[in-house]
Amino acid sequence: MQAGIDSQAGPGAPAKTSLDARQTSTAPGLRLEMESVSLVYQAGTPFASRALNEISLVVEPGERLGIAGPVGSGKSSLLAVLAGMEAAASGRVLHDGREVGGKNPPAPGSIGLAFQSPESCLFEKTVYDDVAFSPRRQGLADGEVRRRVEEALAATGLDSSRFGHKSPFSLSAGEQRRVALAGVMAVDPRALLLDEPTAYLDPAARRELIARLVDLNRRTGVTMVMVGHDMQELAAFAERLVIIDGGRKAAEGAAKTILTDVDLLDTYGLDPPGTVVLSRLLSVATGRDIPAVTGEEEAVGLLLRLMADGGIMSPP
C-alpha cells in the first residue's frame, strides 16, 4: 500500500486535472449494455440454478433505470452482472462498448455498486475513513479525498463534521446505510448501481434518499440503475423500468407506462403505486375519465384541480 501511495504522490497534480476535466465533461454517465446474458449458479453441480436467462438490456448514459420483479426473480444477479462483478455464463456485458466481466474488470472507478444492506460492509474505525477508503485507494491527494468524502456524505444527507469522527458501528441503521452509500458514491463512479437502497429504512428516510439520488443524477449526469420493490419509490426514481421474472425480462418501457398498467403489474405480483390506485378510485367515484398519475406531487395537483372544478367535494 505504501508503494501505491508513493507512486501516486508524484503525478498527484495531473490526476486532479483529469478529474476536473471529467467533471466538466457533458456526458459523464456510462452506457451499460447486456446482450442475451445468462447466468448459472453452481454450474456443473447437482445444485446448478439458472439466475438469468437471455437478458438483453441497454442503459443509456445519464439515465435512471428502475428494475422491479418478484422476490428471487434475479434482480440482484442482474445488477451484479451488469456491474461486471459477476461473469455471465453466456452473452456479453458492455460498458461504453467495452466488454467486461470475468477477466475484464470494469474500468477502475467507473462503477459504484451497492448490494442489499451495504452497511454490513462497513469496516473502518471512523465514518470518514470508511468513506475515504476508495478515494485513497484511487491514489488521490488528501485535499481531494476530503472534498470527495464531504461531498459524498452530503449527497446522502450526512454532515461530515458531525459524523466524520464517529465509529460507523455506533450509528443507527439508517445512518449506517447512508455512510455505506456515501462510500460507494465517493468513488465518483460514472454509473451507480443500487440494490434496494431504501430497504429497512423508515418512510421519511426512503423518500429523502430517493430525492437525493435523483438530484445527484440530475446534477452530475451519472447513470443510475436501482433495484426496488416499492413501486411508488420507483415512480419517484425511474425514467424507465424493467420488470424481471424468473430470470427473464418480462417487460420494459417508460416508467409511467409500466407503473400505470395495473394488470401487467398484477401479473408479476407487484402492487401499483398508491397514486395510481388513487386515480383509479377517483375515476370510479367521480365517473370521469381521470388519467393515472405516478408522482405524489402530480396526485396532489390532480386532487386540487378536481376540488377546484367541483369534481369532488372539498373537505368541510
Partner: peptide
C-alpha cells in the same frame, strides 16, 4: 457478497 462489494469499491 462482502468480497464482491468491497471489490466494487476497489478495496
Amino acid at each position: 457478497r462482502i468480497i464482491k462489494a468491497q471489490k466494487a469499491r476497489g478495496a
